[in-house]
Design a protein around this nucleic acid. Structure first.
Lengths: 210, 210
DNA sequence: CCAGAAACCGGCACGCTTGACTGTTTCTGG
DNA sequence: CCAGAAACAGTCAAGCGTGCCGGTTTCTGG
């Protein structure tokens, strides 16, 4: 949308003439993605600025140009994660079977909390407890995501949250999912998780007021 | 219980003649306690060997004598934490009111997951996901504690876990408590937690088979 | 086309963490 | 009471993480 189209057919060997806005956007994206990957693979402690820049294939100079301090980088990564998680959320709103609808919905919800994306968020979550600057960012993230997750579940199961204890049960379900996710981060106990979700689905079907 | 009682009434000014076993035990205890405190206050990242030794009032030399590497210290702290948590567990087995017994039991159980001790365990838990050596130790810890917590809840509510979905509901309750604890580590939302536990107590009363 | 700005590069210095090392004190076993 | 071992003290070097700096390349606005 600028003023300089390619002069003519001559193709410069090295220059591709990428606008700065796009360059910056891409660079920041690569760095934030690398940060999240690093969080998943080596945890908060292992996620150093050097590691991130290497993983992103970005020079340290460029990195420090876009994110002057590690804090800037991580806070940006938090926002990036929010988007990623909300995206995962959207996909799931698809069609559910009539039979065992509750159980299927639970599966989708619980899946949000055993994904790499959640593990990255978990690292930030725990780090934020004792890190002033992170704390603010993560609280914002989680408040927003929490609302979305809540709305998502209500939509999936077509719940009227004004009736009875419905609202609390939805909240409890999300907290349960978080607890299960935490457990899953340490050992992969899918069998146990499935069994619990089975029981939980049945309970929800009985206790939710329509 | 050794061979050398005090010669007579003469009290040596400096020497207190503490047996080595006792000295070692105390030193290790102080270091592990300091480690846990440090985990609670400054998190896994902030918990450096220097910080721990200072907090414990122990010289670096002595520290390295008892725990040659940081790993040794942390793994020991994990075991120490297990004991602390199990202790907290025992205290709660006291008398519960007849009226609202379930709710009261839930309160006790949930309290396990909002205590400083849990926050310390949480730091280790998350760190263990990407730390080979820690992983083994923490998995052991959590397996053991999980069993105890399970048994504790069954005892508190006098549940026959062979009936119906009782077993799963107990498990779910513990996972829910974990999820709530994780949430509490970031922001103190006692009101929300209480509301959820209210609803859950009612549900348990209906769904548990006696 | 051309200054000026923005993006990018790689090395460097400072502070911190870790654990190894050399002494010194305190206890144990005979 | 006395060697030898264990407990304890404090310093030092190596490695790493972070952020800064001068210099180079690429883009923008006129």
């Amino acid at each position: 949308m600028s003023t300089t189209p390619e002069p003519d057919g001559s193709v410069p060997v090295t220059a591709a003439r990428v606008p700065q806005g796009e360059r910056t956007r891409l660079m920041r994206l690569r760095l934030m993605e690398a940060t999240v990957e690093s969080l998943v693979e080596v945890g908060w402690t292992g996620t150093t600025t050097t590691v991130v820049s290497q993983r992103a294939g970005v020079s340290r100079g460029a990195q420090l140009h876009h994110f002057p301090s590690k804090q800037d980088l991580v806070v940006a990564a938090v926002d990036y994660l929010t988007e990623r998680r909300r995206l995962e959320l959207g996909v799931t709103a698809a069609d559910l079977p009539e039979q065992g609808r509750t159980r299927a919905a639970l599966e989708l919800i619980a899946a949000q909390y055993v994904s790499p994306v959640f593990f990255a968020a978990l690292e930030l979550w725990v780090a934020a407890r004792t890190d002033e600057a992170l704390h603010e960012a993560v609280v914002r993230l989680e408040r927003r995501f929490g609302r979305d997750a809540h709305a998502n579940m209500i939509a999936l199961l077509d719940i009227d949250e004004r009736r009875g204890r419905n609202r609390q049960l939805v909240q409890a379900t999300l907290d349960l999912a978080r607890g299960l996710g935490l457990a899953a981060s340490l050992t992969d106990d899918s069998a146990r998780r499935a069994s619990i979700l089975d029981a939980w689905a049945e309970t929800l079907d009985r206790e939710l007021e329509t």
